[in-house]
Amino acid sequence: MVRIFGILAGLFFVAALSWSLATGAYTAITEPASPTAEHEFYKHPKHLALASDGVFGKFDNQQIQRGFQVYKEVCAACHSLRLVAFRDLTQLGYNEAEVKAIAASFQVPGVDPNTGEANTRPGLAIDYFPKPYPNDIAARAANNNAIPPDLSLMAKARHDGAAYVYSLLTGYQAQPAKLLKEFPDSKTGPGLHYNPYFPNLNLAMAPPLSGPGQVTYGEGNPQPTVDQMAKDVSAFLVWTAEPKLAKRHQTGWPVLLFLIVLTGLAYLAYQNVWRDKKH
């Protein structure tokens, strides 16, 4: 009885699926999907090698400090970093006095102790990086209707995040003539900037990095070229997204080694217990 109902139900599903398949195939033949500019001209992120890559990856504090400098002097004007506190910077090798000074150089929201009105005060180590705009509406209004996203988790919130940031920052270019020829309607609109590493190819953010002179790196650091700054800020964002990455790798190896030895012993014990039982 179950078998008869089963076969009937099976035929029902198979028929419904075949109908969907036939309709879909008919549509695919009669109205083939037209290619889109995004589909043809989007590029996957360029390769980016960082010290934090791979199973042995750890942080290059010097590079991340440079990246932090780029964030502070360039990106912070529009992008928040709301999940990172100034105190976290001690992990990058800054001492407490330096962290205090960095924190104090930012104005964070506060309350006037006499009137109770909202005001700003210099940041403390326990404060989080302040947002450049009080709310999304203000952010939208100031940026041609596009909200600059928070950067705290950017390196994890995109596929191949660090390489994506690096590619985006270095990927601005003129719209290819071939694109305009094939898709005349896809001309980059006013206030937008062509960037093949951005999923829809047109980005509201103007090229933020301009090259030497924009920031000054300290003694013993490479020249702050656009490429170098883009790499450094990507490295910084890997850290902000996953500050425990180095500790995770450091913990992982002993755990893995221990488990391999344990499993080896467990295998010997297993063989030992079964030695006179054929199975």
Partner: peptide
């Protein structure tokens, strides 16, 4: 020697559990 292997495996697992 064989008993030692069993004991070693169980003790190692114990150490791992405590860790």
């Amino acid at each position: 020697r064989r008993d030692f292997i069993n004991i070693a495996a169980v003790s190692f697992a114990g150490i791992g559990g405590v860790a």
